[in-house]
Design a protein around this nucleic acid. Structure first.
Lengths: 120, 120
DNA sequence: ATAACAGTTGAACAGTTGTTCAACTGTTGG
DNA sequence: CCAACAGTTGAACAACTGTTCAACTGTTAT
């Protein structure tokens, strides 16, 4: 009798643990889905793709980006802030100029993959 | 004299052709940048990433997607329309059900790349 | 010190986006 | 045929996004 109660209790507890683990996995998966969407969201704007495409070749300061993409310095700067915050670009100061470049090879790879897909 | 005029005219024409070619290239580049941004934009929403992640494993009908992602059938359907229009997913009918799947390996590759980057 | 240049930042605005709701089409089983 | 199920679609709405403008910080040359 006491055995059966203990078994029943153990099963219930085990089942609950399983449910919790399942929920945690679902939560982690959901979190990853949001992170992936957030990553691609940053690649999902023409201005930012333009910036990263220019930086793919070599580092550039803000005014160069502004000239090459034919946009105001302010607009470029706002987008660079987003890319910087997400660790997609980095920069170094040289006198008055801030030279931006792609943060790592992962960024170049993702960008290249995008162009590859577009080129069929 | 007539030679010089002809040469001058030829140079001007060549220069103009160069400028036009340059402009066309810039135009093509700009068009590609927009296409790449448009591609990534579709990967830049949690619902759509969720759908594609589920479809990565195997094809699913709309009501399965609705259950798995805990969203209304309507919301899923709206997002599937966007993915369908851009050629990122395809579907086949089986009775009352429409089974959706990823359009090609390129889509899986881009998605996988995203998860890879998020997993450091 | 100060003028000029390089870039950042916040508020404001228009345009876009994703979800909901309700009405709709299409398919199947009774 | 028709009821039930599977899914689509358009309008409406709130939330979000990208650009502009003006004011700002930081650096350099005079």
């Amino acid at each position: 009798m006491e055995e059966r109660i203990k078994n029943a209790a153990a099963e219930t507890h085990a089942a609950r643990v399983d449910r919790v683990i399942e929920a945690e996995e679902a939560f982690r998966d959901a979190a990853k889905i949001f992170s992936v969407a957030e990553l691609f969201r940053l690649f999902g704007d023409p201005t930012r793709v333009g910036i990263m495409t220019v930086l793919y070749e070599k580092e550039r300061c803000v005014c160069e980006l502004s000239d090459l993409l034919v946009m105001t310095v302010s607009a470029i700067s706002h987008q660079l802030r987003l890319l910087k915050q997400s660790g997609l670009v980095k920069y170094r100061r040289e006198g008055k100029h801030l030279y931006y470049s792609l943060a790592d090879s992962h960024v170049s790879t993702i960008l290249a993959q995008g162009f590859e897909h577009v080129n069929e």
